[in-house]
Amino acid sequence: RVVWRVQQSGFSKQGKPWAMVLAYMDNRAVQERFDEVFGIAGWKNEFKTAPDGGTLCGISVKFGDEWVTKWDGAENTQVEAVKGGLSGSMKRAAVQWGVGRYLYDLPTSFAQTSLEKTDDWNKVFDKKAGKNFWWNNPQLPSWALPQNPKVQNTKADFTEEEIPNPPKLYVVGKDKKE
């Protein structure tokens, strides 16, 4: 599941709204993807305090009888500091496993915008102009769309031969380097 957020927005000299948007994954997408690929008992996470006061997250995946862990960290956030630090560190640890890594390769996207309220579109309040406008989520490029929405391996019951080549963990899409 890909989520979009506005990075920058404004109005042109002609009064038309614009919004530059970024794609990201939320923490629920990370949890769902690991559940789909490894099953609920085939992965786990743990948290530690980072040296600078942020949060470190380790995501472990079970291959045979062995747990393999990859770590990453994040600072606590301005809003809901602890929750934001936990969520951010887990998303970053998931990228170590390949989940959502392709999102870094997406080009800058500008959303379709409207001054008229449009159902199912997102609302933005532009402080400088003092008014609202609406924007629609862009479409992902074809290389970032799922090639096969069904996950083949849903449990961590891999054979020894499969351990060196674990299944891909991308939230959606396919590694374009393959």
Rank of each mutant, 00 (worst) to 15 (best):
W18I: 01
A19N: 06
M20Q: 15
V21D: 08
V21P: 03
L22F: 03
A23V: 14
A23W: 10
Y24G: 13
M25V: 15
M25A: 12
D26W: 01
N27C: 14
N27P: 02
R28M: 10
A29R: 00
V30M: 11
V30I: 15
V30N: 11
Q31A: 12
Q31K: 07
R33E: 01
F34Y: 10
F34C: 10
D35Y: 05
E36N: 09
E36V: 02
F38E: 04
F38Y: 15
F38H: 08
G39N: 10
I40T: 14
A41R: 04
A41L: 00
G42W: 07
W43H: 00
K44R: 15
E46G: 13
F47L: 03
F47M: 00
A50G: 14
P51M: 03
P51K: 09
D52H: 15
G53F: 12
G53R: 14
G54A: 02
G54H: 05
C57V: 03
G58F: 10
I59F: 00
I59R: 01
S60K: 00
V61Y: 00
V61G: 01
G64M: 12
D65C: 01
E66A: 11
E66L: 09
W67T: 04
V68C: 09
T69S: 12
T69E: 14
K70P: 06
K70D: 01
W71F: 13
W71R: 08
D72R: 03
D72F: 05
A74M: 03
A74H: 11
N76T: 15
T77F: 03
V79N: 10
E80Y: 04
A81Q: 08
A81M: 00
A81H: 02
V82W: 05
V82Q: 13
G84D: 05
G84W: 02
G85P: 10
G88P: 04
G88M: 04
